Computed example of a mutant assay.
Amino acid sequence: MDLNTHIPEEERWPAYLEAWFSGEADAETLAALQAWRKASPANERLFQAYQRALSPHPPVWAQQIDVNRSWEELLPRLTRKEAPAKSSRITWRVPAFAAAAVLALLLVGWWLMAPKVHRVQVADGKETIWLPDSSQVLLNAHSTLTYKEGFGKEHRSVTLEGQGFFQVRPDKRLPFRIESKAAVTQVVGTSFDLQAYPGQGQESLAVVTGTVQYQPLSPEGEPLGAPAIVQAGHSITFKKQAEEITLNALMPHDQLVWSGRLVFEQTRLDQVLRVLRKHYKREIVLQDPKAGQCLLTASFQEEKLTDVLDVIALSLRMTWQASGDSYILSGNGCNEDI
């Protein structure tokens, strides 16, 4: 094969590979191909990908040629100085199989260079995930979280299908984005619960700390009005079909129970006890029903029920005692006049 020296080296590899796979390569071409492969790791990876895509087994004729010996014989001629050759136009012959080979190579290269996607799926139970930027996500059952390579350096975007409790590390340079089927949620640094199961008719967001921006989307993915700003202790509900968004001044306690977190913001004691009964599966009796009007602000995470009752009793000037598998709260609570 005539490989003129005025053709840039990076443009010669198609001819090398064409000769290699067509069986027309002579010793000089094989030596040039060997040199091209050794020139950089990228060239070698390209050759290996090409070979895997088009020729699982090297041809017999290639095994019969001593490439190293041919290269040693050719090297003195390649390094000998000669008069510059006159520029001439070369017509490159590209057989049909070579065009197909190049196309296959491009597909292989695209696959190798495509950004990797990390996916975490939780079938049953729940699972804690630490993201590359040190943010933490607790995924509920039947939930999937995905994010692309470069997370924490080039972007902080994830996709959620299901329910997750997020504790986001602050980073003003890269806001944290959560894309779901019906909305885009964006924060800088905060903790919140987002329920976004694709098959349900609504999404709900409960913010524990910080501030969260929630942008509802139409079925076509277009923004619906201005984004809602949700403060700590508040929640939001988005009904997909009606395209209706509701901002709630109170925390939906049941939404956080699954994560082991109990957050109460100016919540009536009788409502607090209802959540505790469901979460701990224990009977809790309020001796004086009037004390149920007292308001409690407190948060708990994986605490024992007895520790929770200690906090309630101390906050509302009450006492408690165990009675078998049940607990009794005594006292008139927040106001002696109740």
Rank of each mutant, 00 (worst) to 15 (best):
L3W: 11
H6V: 11
R12S: 03
P14L: 04
L17I: 08
W20C: 02
F21C: 08
G23Q: 04
E24A: 12
A25W: 04
E28W: 00
W36C: 01
K38G: 08
A39S: 15
A39I: 03
A42R: 15
N43E: 08
R45C: 00
R45K: 08
L46W: 05
Q48P: 08
Q48E: 08
A49Q: 07
A49D: 03
H57F: 10
H57I: 14
V60R: 13
Q63R: 15
Q63I: 04
Q64C: 03
V67H: 05
N68D: 15
R69T: 12
R69S: 10
R77H: 11
P84H: 11
A85D: 08
A85S: 13
K86G: 11
S87I: 15
T91P: 00
R93S: 03
A98G: 01
V102E: 06
V102G: 04
L103S: 13
L106M: 12
G109S: 08
W110E: 00
W111M: 05
M113A: 14
V122G: 02
A123C: 01
D124G: 07
V137R: 05
L139G: 05
N140R: 13
L145A: 01
G152H: 06
K153G: 12
S157L: 09
L160T: 01
L160V: 02
F165G: 03
P170T: 10
P175S: 03
P175F: 06
F176T: 06
R177E: 09
R177S: 13
E179L: 13
A182D: 03
A183D: 02
A183E: 02
V184L: 08
S191K: 07
Y197P: 03
G199C: 06
P216I: 02
E222V: 10
G225Y: 07
A226H: 09
Q231G: 03
H234P: 00
S235G: 13
F238E: 02
K240R: 14
K240M: 02
K240Y: 01
L247K: 07
A249P: 00
D254F: 06
Q255Y: 15
L256N: 10
V257L: 15
W258Q: 14
W258A: 15
R261H: 10
V263P: 06
F264L: 09
T267G: 04
L269D: 03
L273V: 12
V275I: 13
R277A: 00
R277D: 00
E283N: 12
L286D: 04
Q287V: 07
G292K: 14
G292M: 11
G292R: 14
L295E: 09
L296P: 12
T297I: 08
A298F: 06
Q301K: 14
Q301A: 11
E303I: 14
L305F: 06
T306C: 07
V308L: 07
L309W: 07
L309C: 10
S315Y: 03
L316H: 04
L316I: 02
W320I: 07
Q321K: 14
Q321H: 13
G324V: 08
S326E: 10
S330R: 15
C334F: 06
E336N: 11
I338M: 15
